[in-house]
Amino acid sequence: MSDLPLFDLCLRMGDTCLVLAQRTSEWIGHAPVLEEDIGLANIALDLVGQTQLWLGLAAEVEGKGRSADELAYRRDQGAYRNLLIAERPNGDFGHTLMRQYLFDAWHYPMLQGLTASSDSRVAEIAEKALKEVSYHIARSADLVISLGDGTPESHARMQAALNDLWPYTGEMLIVDEVDAALCEAGLAPDLEPVSAAWHAHVEATLTQATLAKPASGYMHKGGKRGLHSEHLGYILAEMQFLQRAYPTATW
């Protein structure tokens, strides 16, 4: 934990949006139908826009003269604070959608809580992002239901995706010392009502999708502290290539 909990908050929100956007954009040109290709690209774009806002604020509160771009392109994986679920590989289209849905169901109530932040800059970003995320969750929930309650093949794929991703959902909801400090300072919401909202939304959606909620068990953690899976290194190697190879490049 840095001595600036607000910096940590901005990195956690911004890095999660950035890594998920990078993952999602791997689909561009490869989605099963044109509308979904465009939908994935639009969601990735929204998340990149939100990243710019969060990392811009991170740079401002850090006060060391770094820009949002420098935070995105010049940090190694140990300095990234994204949730592990964001770096999970795409898998098939259903797997990507399930990851998006499980994240959206957290992102939405988290942003709602952040609109009441004691820091007006945080509240403003959350207010802006919430409007975009309301479309993300509407789309991802609709598609999880359509595919879960679809053909035997789509149902089986969605259940497999859910089982595979479930151990990565706990990290969003389990309070660590940074979360506690943020809540104490009024900068971020208590995660307990966020967790309750997440469970309620997920249970309702899975019921409609005829999918079985996995038994709660071991949950992977570490992303929020900079301990990542091997996947993040590959993501950053691709995303940061240009700025690493040509450090003075401008355009």
Binding site: E35, I38, G39, L45, Y135, R139
Partner: peptide, 13 residues
């Protein structure tokens, strides 16, 4: 509605 996301971020199909 065909898609919640259209040709630009502000549009739907």
């Amino acid at each position: 509605m065909v898609s919640r996301f259209g040709s630009t971020p502000c549009k739907a199909g």
